[in-house]
Design a protein around this nucleic acid. Structure first.
Length: 716
DNA sequence: ACGCCAGAAGTTTTT
DNA sequence: CTTCTGGCGT
């Protein structure tokens, strides 16, 4: 495509961003302002006017974003040879190439979160700490946090006076040793090591700068310290960095994203050209002004006003419901009505703050006969059947990977239990041998007792698997491994041919097959594919062609758009979440999260809150979210479906006439005495002191609570 | 070595 | 309320 054609249908600011030549460029792109389109055009434009496509590097955060960008650029007819990757996959690839400079070999393993927890558990044990006091998953979080901020174990142990931090520092140091022994890097390392490598290795930096003349970084507001440093160091000489993002959509602060990276871009690069894309092409005026008004309450932000020429649209609605069931029901009814009016369900989404809220929504949708699909974040990465296969392949590629080895040694079950694994482990430690070697020499280890034969068989399996590595086709390797290991058989026997697990395995094979086809020139390898699948998983993506309502967390909603959007649970403690209560910065992040959700909507937006919500078993009175009060009253319709609101007053509001002190029976909690009976917000609330379980609250009409007649039948 | 039951714990998740 | 873990029993 010619350069002029790339500019034809662009607005003036969009065109400025696309045609900007050399030097730093910041594109502040508001929600729905056509950002992806602009970056794709810019990448294409550079490839047409400035340099060969292969000298352009575009970095995104998610695979989905990378895929979308690749598609768009290819559609423009200039994508050949351009590097479009996520931060993680880009770094993983380079680290493989320069492995020896970071102390691993090219076949290194990539540890995901669960591998990390296992390794940290081991580290805690080696530090002779009790895992009751130091919970692996919590320590994992702290170590990840430290890595995200480029802190070494020494930094953590040295800088802090806090005993807990010092201990975490010790575990961290031990964990790093385990990683090294396993020839492994974790997700965070991919970024951290790359940042360090770029700092230390001037020659490599120059080499890469020569290779990538223009660097485009998407979602810059979500970069953490390491990503920021990588971006800077990759563009040190030529300074052809193009950062795009929106400070108002930064929602990953708790994962180490540093909002100041984008806010201070102009301080970092005083000569930066700044382009603001403030025209929204997505939403109605009312949706946009409601969202805009909300975000104005944030103090730490770059002022920006989104505007649109779209129709005014119908008002944003706020629904007040009785409880979460009622809320789910109201949403379902509305969606059912939309469907009758001919709105395709794929254009409808429900967002919520926490995954725990899905259950009631699912129940209501099912009851209403509405098909739905859920986007579940990390769930996919933890699919057992996939991880099992990958663990075998990891061991084949990297025999030092003991985390993977321990995972597969008894998967599928082959009679090698905990005790045997422990014995193998302590033997390895005593003789300072890799676990792999101990497993393979087991004929000499008669002391294993009855398990020795089974370990020997496992060793032979590993031998046979090892030969597969020579095969050219990744598909063949995966298929043969599935067969030899018995994993496929186990899944088919246990779950059946049509089970989700079986389908996932088939999906993995077809993924390998696709990879083969894409690498017919011989450039592919098992190592490479393995790295790719541990970083890229698009099996779980939402299917747009499916006629179903989409359910997802507000975090997962970023980057998507729907005609009709519902956001449930606008309540104090939920949105904003309790965790953010004490910090202004976190509170602002919650507001941005709400803003992100609202700006996903094209035509219709409904926010809801419930007056009561069950939480861990008991019903609690809620307080509506302060965000609701920050919306412009003129643009918003408040609809009160609650009994308190008077629109549906019923017998349910009647207060039972039991005396205080009445003996009560509950099938779950047993006997107790009524200690309070009152009306909270128009709804009868019963409080009972149970003999064994303490105080609990119930709504009189819905609970299974019954008064006990002293001379009557006490059985429920 | 495996399965079951009791007890404890429990926010958000791009990779 | 749920989900997961770890301990105990077979």
């Amino acid at each position: 495509m010619r350069a002029e054609q790339l500019l034809e249908d662009l607005t003036k600011p969009q065109r400025e961003a696309v045609t900007h030549g050399d030097g730093p460029l910041l594109v502040l792109a508001g929600a729905g302002s056509g950002k992806t389109r602009v970056i794709a055009r810019r990448a294409a434009y550079l490839a047409v006017t400035a340099v060969p496509a292969r000298q352009v590097l575009a970095i995104t955060f998610t695979n989905k974003a990378a895929d979308e960008m690749r598609q768009r650029i290819v559609a423009l007819g200039v994508g050949g040879g351009m590097t479009i990757a996520t931060f993680h996959s880009f770094c993983a690839r380079l680290l493989r190439q320069y492995a020896e400079r970071v102390g691993v070999t090219a076949n290194y393993s990539i540890f995901d979160q669960s591998d990390r927890v296992r390794a940290i558990k081991k580290a805690i044990g080696q530090c002779e700490l009790a895992s009751e006091d130091w919970k692996p998953s919590q320590v994992e979080g702290r170590i990840s946090h430290a890595k995200n901020h480029m802190q070494s174990p020494e930094d953590l142990a040295g800088e802090s006076v806090d005993f807990a931090d010092k201990t975490v520092g010790r575990i961290y140091a031990e964990y790093e040793q385990i990683l090294a022994a396993n020839n492994a890097l974790d997700f965070d390392d991919l970024l951290v090591r790359m940042a360090v490598l770029l700092e230390q290795d001037k020659e490599l930096r120059a080499q890469l700068e020569d290779r990538f003349r223009y660097v485009l970084i998407d979602e810059y507001q979500d970069t953490n310290r390491a990503q920021y440093l990588i971006a800077r160091r990759l563009t040190e000489q030529r300074r052809n960095i193009c950062a795009t993002g929106d400070p108002d959509q930064s929602i990953y602060g708790w994962r180490g994203a540093d909002l100041s990276n984008i806010l201070e871009f102009e301080a970092d690069y005083p000569d930066a050209k700044v382009v603001r894309l403030e025209r929204n092409y997505r939403s109605t005026q009312r949706i946009l002004s409601a969202a805009g008004e909300l975000i104005q309450s944030n103090i730490l932000r770059k002022d920006k006003t989104l505007w649109t020429d779209n129709p005014q649209g119908s008002p944003v609605q706020v629904m007040t419901c009785d409880d979460e069931q009622d809320e789910a029901r109201q949403i379902t009814e509305r969606i059912a009505r939309l469907r009758r009016q001919g709105r395709p369900l794929r254009e409808v989404a429900i967002f919520y703050r926490v995954n725990a809220m899905t259950r009631v929504l699912e129940d209501a949708l099912r009851a209403g006969g509405l098909p739905y699909q859920m986007a579940r974040g990390v769930e996919f990465y933890n699919r057992k059947e996939i991880k099992d296969v990958l663990a075998y392949l990891r061991v084949m590629v990297n025999p030092a990977d003991e985390i993977a080895l321990v995972r597969i040694i008894n998967t599928p079950a082959r009679g090698i239990g905990k005790t045997t694994v422990e014995r193998l482990g302590s033997y390895a430690r005593q003789h300072d041998l890799p676990l792999m070697d101990v497993v393979r020499q087991t004929e000499t280890l008669k002391q294993l007792g009855p398990a020795s034969g089974r370990v020997a068989t496992f060793g032979q399996l590993l031998d046979r698997l090892g030969k597969l590595v020579e095969l050219k086709s990744v598909r063949d390797i995966v298929e043969k491994a599935l067969d030899l290991t018995g994993l496929e058989r186990a899944v088919l026997e246990r779950e059946g041919r049509d089970s989700e697990q079986a389908r996932n395995l088939a999906e993995l094979v077809s993924g390998a097959s696709e990879y083969d086809v894409e690498h017919l020139d011989g450039s592919g390898s098992l190592v490479d594919w393995l790295a790719m699948v541990s970083l890229v998983n698009d099996i779980d993506k939402l299917d747009e062609n499916l006629g179903a309502v989409s359910l997802m967390t507000l975090h997962a909603a970023k980057g998507l758009e729907f005609d009709v959007v519902f956001i449930a649970g606008l309540e104090e403690g939920l949105l904003p979440h309790v965790r953010s209560r004490d910090s202004q910065a976190e509170m602002e992040e919650e507001r941005r999260l709400c803003f992100v959700g609202m700006t996903r909507a094209r035509k219709s937006l409904t926010l809801s809150h419930a007056l009561y919500r069950s939480f861990r078993g008991s019903v609690l009175r809620t307080v509506r979210s302060p965000f609701l009060d920050e919306l412009p009253s003129g643009q918003v319709d408040w609809v009160d479906y609650s009994e308190q609101g008077g629109s549906r007053r019923s017998a349910r509001t009647r207060l039972p006439r039991w005396p205080i002190g009445q003996l009560m029976y509950h099938p779950e909690y047993g006997l107790g005495r009524l200690i309070r009976l009152d009306r909270v917000g128009g709804r009868p609330l019963v409080r009972v002191q149970f003999n064994l379980y303490g105080e609990k609250s119930f709504t009189a009409d819905e609970s299974e609570l019954k008064p006990v007649e002293l001379d009557g039948d006490t059985d429920p």
